[in-house]
Design a protein around this nucleic acid. Structure first.
Lengths: 188, 188, 188, 188
DNA sequence: CATGAATGAGCGTTCATTCAT
DNA sequence: GATGAATGAACGCTCATTCAT
């Protein structure tokens, strides 16, 4: 099957899915997503074979988006802690800037429709983040933990931090700081 | 008085719900839950006014169960690190012993049917855990973070650790150890 | 089967049914009726074998109540028009005084659960009213109409009049008058 | 454009609803209506958002149908009584010709799902009938009654007459006559 | 390819009636 | 007899997916 006509429509569907999942969770009807995207009900299935396929694609897209944001503008020359802080800030800022994406991603993360395969791909994306943030292991037993575990822990702390930043924006900076410190200690 | 409402049936429904949510997520049909519990479809609604009510009750029950397991047999006299390690071990063991409960709890935690009120109650339960584990803050900026945030971060690391322990049981002990160390460093 | 214990309970159920049907129509749950009557769910079925049986009994009771009210205090010696006006006034006053009964009766009148047998019995009750109101037929073709038809027409005009009196109480007297006049002309 | 919404199907649903309501009252299951209309269960909801919406639309449609039938072929030049008799005959004939519609309309008329708004629209339709039948008020107190009341009374007598015509068709003509006379006297 | 009507299995919940206590 | 929990068929409505246009 040739690639469907319009990349624009594909993107519109993905963007609409973000908003729909943010508001209604993974139970958001495909009809609603299509409507928000400005395409017909059935057209959604031209671009994604099933609702699951859409969700899997979206999950990866959001992970990539998040990772790219976190790594954006990374100063090549800077001492390690500064780099780490930069990545962390970027990451948290992404969540604050695009709360719908953040929420959609969180909801997709726990939804059965996202397959193990997809999750594995996503993990690989995240491991790069972890890799960049991980200092040379000096001591402690976390150093022997597989990268996947480190990445997952880091990610879960990040998620929690984002939650608090979004729920209580007045102290956003404070949570951001505390979250970073937690991760930093964990890793060092 | 007529046949009294049976605690046994109530428990059977809750237990059935655990299994059903473990397998099918919060979308698990009430009919399935009832069937697994060995009661009629409509009887479920004698014990819980709505599916939501059932889920909220179950969420609290599972949190309480988990907290109780974590705090079980806490040695009164022991130095702090030992106590912490004990709690952490209990906690992880609970997840390994009752993976369905663990999974159901995780799924309920991200489901819209669980209300803010219920979450607030649950948080209070978990804060006790955090309180017991929290060492006297000596330095660092985590010390100024509200207890809720500390509890949430700790919980998220625990969840991640459980995931790895359940997915890769062969290295369960290793993850348990690494997770503990992460939390320990974070807090100290 | 002996008559059930308490006539009081039977009456309480009937009275509760009036209120429930007034508010919810014939779809009112038996459980609600029982609750309003202050008896247990199942007890209702000790006094009335089925919901239908309850409704049929209530229908007759209300018709009787209405007819009795209409004929109450009928002056033995008075010219015909005066008697008729008296009956009509009584009738309308009943509706105004007991709007729930009136509404319940109206709702039961169009409900399938009330059987033809019951309706026939009710008609006999109403025919007495018609008989008392019917002047000696002098002319016109209504004179040849069967009493049942006359009674039914009279009843339908009365129902309509009641509706307007209850909906627009400010002009109640006016509608009462106009309704009476309509019936009077019809019959004379 | 995709398959357009079919007026044929819409009509089939309305017609099926007439039959279903005639037989089972407003409690008729939507599934039954859909089946009788030869469409899928869910298709009914493509044409009418809810069961209530269907009932409201049907109520208006039937009222319009009835009014149109009553006014059909009204001789332009004829003395007043003759015109009135013509309308009345048409009206009664409609009931005899389409007893299911008549019955469905009667049942819908007392059903809570038909809203006040719909009833108001229906009243406007019926007032035209009343207007055409109302002779120039010469005397009596009905002349001061609002048109709505006159229309309602006329309608209720018509309904009663229809009932007798349908229940006892052998004397249909007789009831038709007597009903007309009743209305005529009432109004004149 | 785009459209949106058509499909029908599936869901949460209700309720008349029964029956264990 | 009184109670109210138990039952399970039934209902209105949704929604992923298909397919006629």
């Amino acid at each position: 099957m040739a690639r469907p006509r319009s990349d624009e429509k594909r993107s519109a569907i993905l963007a609409a899915a973000v908003r729909a999942i943010d508001r209604h969770g993974p139970g958001a009807p495909t009809a609603l997503i299509a409507k928000e995207a400005g395409v017909a009900n059935g057209s959604l299935f031209t671009y994604f074979q099933t609702k699951s396929a859409l969700f899997n694609a979206l999950y990866l897209e959001l992970k990539r988006d998040m990772a790219a944001a976190a790594l954006a503008g990374l100063p090549a020359v800077a001492d390690l802690p500064e780099q780490l802080r930069h990545v962390w800030s970027n990451w948290m800022e992404w969540a604050v800037r695009a709360p719908q994406k953040r929420q959609a991603l969180a909801r997709l993360g726990v939804c059965d429709e996202v397959t193990v395969t997809t999750r594995a791909q996503a993990q690989r994306i995240m491991e790069e983040l972890a890799y960049r943030m991980k200092p040379p292991p000096a001591r402690g037993s976390m150093r022997e933990a597989p990268l996947a575990f480190v990445a997952a822990v880091m990610n879960s702390v990040a998620e929690t931090t984002m939650d608090f930043m979004l729920t209580d924006p007045a102290h956003g900076e404070h949570y951001c700081q505390a979250g970073f410190e937690a991760v930093w200690r964990m890793l060092s």
